[in-house]
């Protein structure tokens, strides 16, 4: 997975969504995420969905505790957001697309 990552300077946002199985919450999170990305990052983002039930070792390796967790892998610094991403305001702040009011 990690070798396929884009370079940081190509302006592409690399987002990773950790889920554990296909739960209503993870489906909602992905849909919420796509919505935010289309609105604010159209054409310059990739979303990778990692199902920890299939890759349990990544939970430890990537320090994931809560589900869903959204990780902004690029651009640096790495940021983590937890929850179903239903609070768009918090998502934008968490991704650093908007300053804390």
């Amino acid at each position: 997975m990690s070798d396929a990552e884009p370079e940081s300077d190509d302006g592409i946002w690399h987002l990773r969504l950790y889920v554990a199985g296909e739960t209503p919450r993870s489906v909602a999170a992905l849909s919420n995420l796509k919505h935010v990305c289309e609105e604010h990052l159209a054409g310059r983002y990739t979303i990778e969905v990692i199902d920890l039930l299939e890759h349990p070792q990544l939970a430890q390796g990537e320090q994931i505790v809560a589900i869903p967790t959204l990780e902004r892998r690029l651009p640096p610094p790495v940021r983590k957001i937890i929850g179903d991403l239903s609070n768009t305001e918090r998502v934008l702040i968490g991704l650093d697309l908007r300053q804390e009011p």
């Binding site: 950790y18 554990a20 199985g21 919450r25 999170a29 919420n32 920890l52 039930l53 349990p56 070792q57 939970a59 430890q60 320090q63 994931i64 505790v65 809560a66 589900i67 869903p68 967790t69 959204l70 940021r79 983590k80 957001i81 937890i82 929850g83 179903d84 991403l85 239903s86 609070n87 918090r90 998502v91 702040i93 968490g94």
Partner: peptide
């Protein structure tokens, strides 16, 4: 397994659970 959870790195955006922690413990 050192579980690193730091408040300033985590933004809460809605409902969540700790399933990933369960996965970690279960995997171990």
């Amino acid at each position: 397994d050192f579980v690193k959870v730091e408040r300033d790195q985590i933004e809460q955006t809605g409902d969540y659970d700790l399933e990933a922690l369960f996965v970690r413990i279960g995997f171990a």
